[in-house]
């Protein structure tokens, strides 16, 4: 019984999640966000969510230490599933990997060429995939011995497709950044506008009150009684009701 789970873990096609996933309970998440707020409060003035990562807690309680995100790789090297990766190594070209390149690199990434031709090549590759599959089925039905060659072609096509697609990723990242910035800009402008609208409203109310008040005070002087003071208050509330009710 003791050995059984161990065996299962080795036989699984995907590794089990790291054991600390159980620490991410709602209770713990709540606690850490409270801790963060309490530690952020001191330097709240220069706190900028765009540039600051979630605050590094200096001394997280031991049961919360797994909720603390690790430092980003300092030298651009990181490990994933036991393999070492380096962010600074550029994507190797197809030729370097010994794969036939089926397309002329469309305006080497980094120049200012348009990307329309890239989409065009992708579409062509997709069509070739389907066509080659059709040919493969045909070959299989006539002479299966020749199939491996065709399978090799399909493999080359798939790898080419993936490669072209992954070359496009930096472009998409920039595109997403632009979208996010536009979003933020809109939000910020909407907020400003909302505040300005409110300000205008309040100002107009105050103005209305001032006029009323001056009329009332004129009256008060003439009549010289206590009653108008109470009226004065109800006028304000009437006015407020009109605006916000």
């Amino acid at each position: 019984m003791e050995v059984q789970p161990e065996l299962n873990r080795l036989a699984a096609s995907f590794p089990a999640p790291p054991p600390f996933w159980k620490e991410f309970t709602e209770e713990n998440l709540d606690r850490i966000s409270k801790l963060r707020v309490s530690q952020t409060f001191d330097n709240l003035k220069n706190f900028n969510p765009a540039t600051t990562l979630p605050l590094k807690l200096l001394e997280p309680p031991p049961e919360l230490r797994y909720l603390q995100p690790p430092d980003p790789p300092a030298k651009g090297q990181y490990r994933c599933f036991g393999d070492q990766y380096d962010l600074n190594i550029p994507l190797p070209s197809l030729d370097e990997q010994g794969i036939t390149s089926l397309y002329t690199p469309p305006s080497t990434p980094g120049s200012d060429g348009k990307h329309g031709d890239r989409a065009f090549i992708l579409k062509r590759l997709a069509k070739s995939l389907l066509l080659n599959f059709l040919e493969l089925v045909g070959i299989l039905s006539v002479n299966p011995d020749q199939a491996p060659e065709k399978i090799q072609d399909l493999r080359t096509l798939f790898i080419n497709f993936h490669h072209l697609l992954n070359e496009y990723r930096p472009h998409q990242a920039r595109e997403s950044l632009i979208l996010m910035m536009q979003d933020q800009l809109e939000k910020s402008r909407a907020e400003t506008k909302g505040i300005m609208d409110m300000k205008g409203k309040v100002e107009s109310i105050l103005e209305g009150l001032n006029q009323k008040q001056s009329i009332e005070s004129d009256k008060t002087r003439e009549e010289d009684t206590d009653a108008p003071v109470i009226d004065d208050g109800s006028d304000v509330w009437d006015e407020l009701e009109k605006e916000f009710g």
Partner: peptide
């Protein structure tokens, strides 16, 4: 999916300019 890939019509230079412009606007 290929035809709706984001920013097909933008080159890298366009993107950089747009980002700078947006930064200023922000």
């Amino acid at each position: 999916l290929i035809s709706v890939l984001p920013g097909l019509e933008n080159s890298e230079k366009d993107q950089e300019e747009m980002i700078k412009q947006l930064e200023a606007d922000l």
